[in-house]
């Protein structure tokens, strides 16, 4: 047994496929956090996307419509979070956690008639690669361009850095944040639908199995930079894929210790980028998680 038996191209393809739901969900969350909002409900929005996408694809026999429905469902759930945290000023951490509970429960409820059904096959470009894989990379590019180069992106970042100042300049802080939250939900929904329509493809209760939480970790790992999100998703997805592939090769390393590694690495990265620098320099939005209240 040697590593030469590991076809690098095939390995790369599996890695790209495994990282795709993470890229979508994390990229959405990145935009949300850049606008100064911390939504911990990614897992809930992903699984709602997984079932909504699945159900719609089965009903219409079109994976594309499935993905569309997944985006809409993710955004709808996200807007519920937006309503609570932006309009009713509820605590973001608690609301996000409640959103995950609600999403997992609701998805399981909606999904009951869909166990054991095959979805319409999604078109593959090559091997495990479907259209969502390149689109995910394009999304990263688009988000980068939007945040770094476009005027609305600049405003969004301003809202995330200092909502009071942005408000004083006349920008509609709450509306901008709601838009970001809805975008984040749509992306998470698409990531979830990628799981249920392409990667596994089937619907089973609880099938996201923690992917939403990993997406949250990736945003931090990436220090809120789109390109690094892609890198982080490859790393987090890659550890599992590599572990499974090495085992398939007969090099048995499957252990809890290895599963810990990416999280420890994230902490390390966070410390490295945070050490000795101001928050603005490292890209963490200064207003992350803080309540904005225009009336006060």
């Amino acid at each position: 047994m040697d590593l030469a038996a590991l076809d690098p191209l095939l390995l790369l393809a599996s890695l790209l496929a495994a990282a795709t739901p993470l890229i979508w969900a994390a990229m959405g969350e990145l935009v949300v956090e850049r606008s100064g909002v911390l939504n911990l409900g990614v897992e809930g929005m992903m699984i709602i996307g997984a079932i909504a996408g699945f159900a719609a694809a089965v009903a219409t026999a079109s994976p594309a419509l499935g993905f569309l429905a997944a985006a809409a469902a993710g955004a709808a759930l996200a807007l519920l979070f937006g309503l609570l945290t932006q309009i009713l000023l509820a605590n973001q951490v608690a609301t996000g956690l409640a959103l995950t509970m609600f999403g997992l429960g609701l998805a399981a409820l909606i999904g009951q008639p869909y166990s054991g059904i095959k979805p319409p096959p999604a078109t593959r470009l090559a091997g495990q690669i479907d259209v969502m894989v390149p689109l995910g990379l394009a999304l990263a590019g688009a988000v980068w361009w939007f945040l770094a180069r476009s005027r609305p992106g600049l405003i969004l970042r301003a809202v995330g850095e200092n909502h009071d100042a942005a408000h004083a300049l006349g920008y509609p802080v709450v509306a901008i944040r709601l838009a970001a939250i809805a975008f984040g939900g749509a992306c998470a929904g698409l990531g979830g639908a990628h799981l249920s329509l392409v990667r596994v493809p089937q619907w089973t209760e609880g099938m996201t199995a923690g992917a939403g939480w990993i997406a949250l970790a990736i945003v931090v790992f990436a220090s809120w930079r789109p390109a690094r999100v892609v890198l982080g998703a490859w790393l987090f997805g890659g550890v599992t894929i590599l572990q499974l592939n090495l085992q398939a090769l007969g090099l048995g390393i499957g252990s809890a210790w290895m599963s810990m590694a990416p999280y420890l690495m994230t902490i390390l990265v966070l410390v490295l980028i945070s050490a000795g620098r101001s928050r603005a320099a490292l890209g963490a939005p200064a207003c992350l998680g803080r309540v904005f209240d225009a009336s006060g």
Binding site: Q247, A248, L249
Partner: peptide, 27 residues
Amino acid sequence: FKIVWVSTWFDPAKEADAANALIEQGC
């Protein structure tokens, strides 16, 4: 036999990844 331990009874995505890894190794 090529054997992959996934350390879970139920995780569809991981089971699918394991299946893909095994198929790529010629199973």
